[in-house]
Every structure is written in C-alpha cells, then in structure tokens.
Design a protein around this nucleic acid. Structure first.
Length: 258
DNA sequence: AAGCATAACAACCGCCGATCA
DNA sequence: GTGATCGGCGGTTGTTATGCT
C-alpha cells in the first residue's frame, strides 16, 4: 500500500546539517549539477536522505540566497501576495528574488500571520479569518482540479494558477481608456499584442481574474484559448520584478488589504 | 542562576503532479 | 495505458535561542 519511502532511514543523519556536510553537498552540486537527488547522497558521500539534500541545497546552499533581514518592502509584498495567492509559498517566493518558500513560510507563520490577524481583529472585518477562508478555497480548488472541472471563481481576490508555466502576465489597468470587454474587437487585441511585440500570447481563463475580481491575468504559452479582455500588456519576468514598482502599481487596488 | 515559556527557524513528512519506461 | 520514480510543495514537528519570572 502507498509509496515506498524515498530512502531507508536507517543509518542516516538527521537534524541540523554540519559545515562538513554542507561542503560535501556544495562540492557535489557544483561539480555535477542539481537533480538525481535520490542518488546524490551516496554519490556525494552523505548520510542523508535525498530529499533532505535537495531541501538543504535549495533553501541554504544555492547561490544567491538571501538570509534574514526581511525588509518592510518585502514584508508588505509578502502580505499582499499572500492575500492574493494564499499559502502558495513557492509562488510568493518566486516574486521575492533570493528568498525561499521555506523562509517566507516560516516568516509568515511566526511574524506576519499574527500581524495580519491582529490587523483583521482591529479592523472591521467580521468574516472568517483569512487562513480558514484560504484553506477552504484551496481545498475547493484542489477538489475541482481532481474532478477536472473549472472551479467557481473565488469570492475574494485570490488567484489560482499554474505558476510553473506562467511566463507572461496582463495588468488590467483601470486607468486606461480601454473599451469595455463587450465592445472589444479581435483587432484591438491583435494590435495590442503586436505593439507589445508578442506573437501568440494566450490567456488561461481558468487562471485569469476579471477586471472586477482583481487585476491579474496570467498568460500561458501553451494554452490555446483566445484573448478577450481589455489590457495593458507587460512582460512579466517573475525573477526580476522591481519591488518598489510592484508595490506602487495599482495591482493591489482590487485587494481588500488595508 | 535556574527553570519555564515563547519565539524563531531548520528540517522532516506525506501528498501530488509530471515524467518516463 | 499503467505503474514506478522523481521532484516540488505545503503542513507540521523538532530544536535552538531568547526573554521572563
């Protein structure tokens, strides 16, 4: 029944990594690259589970990792992204260069969760706490996914998407004098795409939020649905978002965050 | 100074989707 | 088409650090 464990736990080290273990892992990955985590410990001479090696590398040893000192800008971004995405830590981390999902998750659980909850308590909201609400939404979404049906749109502004495949994003700009969704012509969309230098940007309607729901609409290269909304188009390199720009954008206007 | 409580963070666990044979 | 494997993710637990009495 069930899957076999990723490795035998017998004879393996557990707990905090030593400097020597870190060095072994670092040396091995630098030499052979990432991947094949299951076989890595044996090859690298580590008495660790492959998963443990992967986690250690991704969260601490990988080049470019930022540790600690989460700035107020980053904090604010985390809160806003959490409001938008829920507990999708990897997605949130993807928007904070150098930060890992584990660190953000921990930071949220120890600091921001309380902060946000206090804010909710202090405010006028009498609805369920975000965590419960988000949990339910996520659960519904997973359930819907399992049943291969399109989930009903979330009641709040959270957006569910497949981030791993997301390469572009649309920012729906309320300020833009765009025609209404009903009035749009295919030509308008085509012109926009051409102006942006895009050849075949396509939108995933399951993942896209409407202008009323929120601001974001994610684009997928391999999706074959046509585009049908009024937009301002931006390239959206997840790894290179400029934090202040993002914070200052009207991306958040649709959120209920104070 | 000792003991306890709490906070912070590192690591583990189990599930799931993607991929491959 | 199917089962096995791998990698990734989010939740949870364990450990260490810090503060308080």
């Amino acid at each position: 029944m069930g899957r076999s464990p990723c490795c035998s736990k017998k004879g393996l080290n557990r707990g905090v990594w030593t400097a020597q273990e870190d060095q072994f892992l670092r040396d091995y990955v630098n030499l052979h690259g990432q991947g094949k985590w299951r076989n890595l410990p044996q090859s690298a001479g580590l008495k660790r589970c492959g998963k443990s090696c992967r986690l250690r590398w991704l969260n601490y040893l990988r080049p470019g990792i930022k540790r600690g000192n989460i700035s107020t800008d980053e904090e604010e971004l985390i809160i806003r992204l959490h409001k938008l995405l829920g507990n999708r830590w990897s997605l949130i981390a993807g928007r904070l260069p150098g930060r890992t999902d584990n660190e953000i998750k921990n930071y949220w659980n120890t600091n921001l969760c309380k902060k946000v909850q206090d804010g909710v308590m202090a405010g006028e909201s009498k609805t369920k706490t975000p965590s419960t609400q988000e949990k339910n939404l996520h659960h519904d979404h997973q359930k819907a996914k399992a049943q291969s049906i399109t989930p009903s749109p979330p009641k709040n502004n959270m957006i569910y998407t497949k981030a791993s495949k997301c390469s572009k994003v649309l920012l729906l700009d309320p300020v833009l004098p765009c025609p209404s969704m009903q009035m749009q012509s295919d030509n308008f969309i085509t012109e926009l795409l051409e102006e942006a230098g895009a050849e075949s940007l396509l939108v995933d309607h399951d993942s896209a939020a409407t202008k009323e729901d929120g601001i974001l609409a994610f684009l997928f290269d391999d999706d074959e649905k046509e585009l049908s909304t009024d937009i301002s188009l931006l390239d959206f390199d997840i790894g290179e978002i400029h934090l202040p720009d993002l914070l200052n954008s009207n991306l958040w206007d649709g959120c209920e965050l104070n």
